[in-house]
């Protein structure tokens, strides 16, 4: 078991390891994750001098990336957050509203329409790639960030499915009591259903956050100006522009892109596992 875990940890560990190397050692063969430092006159790995040199090298690499003239990572970071926040809000709200309609209301044809929702999960992204692009072109939205988060405001089939399953488990009595107290559907939704569904809503929000964070194709197609780039696209451009030469900086940039996801994962692992277990994250 630990062998498997170690194997799975290798790429991330090496991403971090290369990111704190001096440039000359980033493209050097070797299986030792730690570089020899200071360069030329290596100190033993257990010495204080070694670790302070390592810290110096790390901060040099990371500030080199953050302040790089070739890529404006602080701006990419902000852009990604902006798209992320907007699409998470939209996805969670819209999906919750739609899921309410699919679970707490009884109306003829409801289950038929819900099957349609599930069927849309089967449509390959490739079919939608070009026509969606042309659609946004017709709307005049190419080169803006709207195509990246606007669709989320209409909910997503998978999130609706997830929330509907959760809403179904909420006992009807609670709702009926609220109705007797004079609550409208909207009031019931806001005051009873949403507060009770926090875990499920969190799952949906997290899944959407990660999906937006990881999205590469959308920014690639819709963004034309460097000042709009998201982290994924910025990293790809940074990497391809450098042609892989300063690997230490490219890896430091990768760590910057991965770190927020790691933090989220540590803070909310339970919810991720819940969401992905249901089949949600795609690569």
């Amino acid at each position: 078991m630990w062998i498997a875990a170690t194997l799975y940890a290798i790429p991330l560990v090496w991403m971090a390891a290369v990111s704190i190397r001096p440039a000359a050692q980033a493209a050097a063969a070797g299986v030792n994750p730690l570089p020899s430092l200071p360069e030329g006159d290596p100190a033993p790995k257990w010495s204080v001098a070694y670790w302070s040199a390592l810290a110096g090298q790390s901060s040099e690499n990371y500030s080199g990336v953050w302040n790089s003239p070739a890529a404006d990572f602080p701006t990419y970071f902000r852009n990604t957050l902006m798209v992320g926040v907007l699409s998470v809000l939209g996805m969670t709200l819209a999906s919750a509203v739609a899921a309410y309609g699919f679970s707490r209301l009884r109306w003829p044809g409801r289950d038929g329409v819900f099957v349609l929702v599930l069927l849309t999960l089967m449509i390959p992204q490739a079919v939608l790639m070009s026509p969606q692009y042309l659609l946004f072109k017709k709307m005049g939205l190419i080169g803006t960030m709207l195509p990246l988060w606007l669709p989320a405001w209409f909910g997503g089939a998978f999130s609706i499915f997830l929330l509907r399953q959760f809403f179904m488990t909420i006992p009807r009595e609670l709702e009926e009591a609220a109705r007797i107290d004079g609550c409208s559907h909207w009031g019931t939704f806001l005051r009873i259903i949403l507060p009770l569904s926090r875990p499920a809503l969190l799952v949906v929000a997290l899944m959407q956050a990660v999906a937006t964070w990881n999205d590469f194709l959308g920014p690639l197609l819709y963004l034309n100006r460097e000042e709009q780039y998201t982290l994924s696209l910025g990293l790809q451009m940074f990497q391809s522009q450098h042609g892989g030469t300063p690997w230490n900086l490219v890896m430091a940039a990768s760590v910057i892109v991965v770190a927020p996801v790691l933090v989220l994962y540590v803070a909310a692992r339970r919810f991720f596992v819940g969401g992905v277990g249901a089949g949600g994250v795609k690569e």
Binding site: A9, P11, N214, F216, S232, L235, S254, V257, Y265
Partner: peptide, 10 residues
């Protein structure tokens, strides 16, 4: 499980 969440570009 972690690599599942790593952005595809990274």
């Amino acid at each position: 499980f972690l690599p599942t969440l790593v952005p595809v570009v990274a």
